Amino acid sequence: MKKNESDLKHIVLRLGGFHIEMSFLGSIGRLTAGSGLHEVLEPVYASNAVNHMLSGKAVSRAVRGFMMVENALHILLMKGALRVSLPSAHETDTEADSSESDEIGERACELYDRFFAGEETTKSVEQSSIFSAICTKLVATKEKLCKSRTSSLWLNFLPHDKHS
């Protein structure tokens, strides 16, 4: 062995699953810094807890918090894509295209009811025209929103599926 080489040179350190998850959550916190994620989580968690969540130190809180944010983003995305209003003390706007959104909503509810009654399969739901119409509207809304840097960041934060 040469004088400059160490026996430790051939050792590779690997993080365990938990520490990889901590590192990943910390990277999300770093990537989303300044995007409003901290402010979105503060009404639910204390400011210091949010700091720990975004640094990757509070793993279970971070996972729960990010899942809540993801669900809220999906609701807002669906609201925008389907032009439906959600009950809120702060909103008084009425959407212009309510007849089309009402029809889509009614047809989607009927499809949902048939699915849970066992009259539809997952495959038949995926192949239905209403499902295709909803997916098309979601894709169009995402493309429109991606023109903004912050929206693009948030949309990339959401998981992707084969339909959108």
Rank of each mutant, 00 (worst) to 15 (best):
51 N>R: 10
57 K>R: 15
79 K>E: 14
15 L>C: 00
15 L>S: 06
41 L>F: 03
59 V>E: 04
35 S>L: 01
32 T>A: 13
53 M>T: 06
23 S>P: 01
81 A>H: 08
43 P>K: 08
18 F>G: 04
69 V>M: 07
67 M>E: 15
53 M>K: 05
53 M>I: 05
78 M>G: 07
48 N>A: 10
45 Y>K: 06
18 F>E: 10
45 Y>F: 15
32 T>V: 07
69 V>S: 03
73 L>P: 07
80 G>I: 08
86 L>S: 01
46 A>K: 10
88 S>I: 01
59 V>C: 05
71 N>S: 15
41 L>Y: 01
80 G>T: 02
68 M>I: 00
47 S>K: 15
42 E>R: 04
41 L>R: 04
72 A>E: 12
74 H>S: 09
68 M>A: 11
33 A>I: 03
32 T>Y: 10
86 L>C: 04
74 H>F: 14
58 A>Y: 11
56 G>N: 10
56 G>I: 12
14 R>E: 06
37 L>V: 12
66 F>L: 15
71 N>Q: 13
86 L>N: 01
45 Y>W: 14
79 K>Y: 00
22 M>L: 06
40 V>R: 11
47 S>Q: 15
84 V>Y: 07
16 G>P: 07
61 R>T: 03
70 E>Q: 15
23 S>G: 12
26 G>I: 01
15 L>I: 00
81 A>D: 03
71 N>L: 12
80 G>C: 07
37 L>T: 07
21 E>D: 02
67 M>K: 13
36 G>A: 08
52 H>C: 09
24 F>Y: 11
20 I>Q: 09
75 I>N: 06
85 S>C: 12
54 L>D: 08
79 K>Q: 14
20 I>G: 03
14 R>Q: 11
57 K>L: 00
78 M>I: 13
64 R>S: 13
61 R>C: 01
83 R>K: 15
77 L>Y: 07
53 M>C: 05
36 G>T: 07
41 L>K: 02
62 A>S: 14
38 H>P: 04
32 T>F: 14
38 H>A: 13
26 G>L: 04
59 V>H: 02
83 R>C: 13
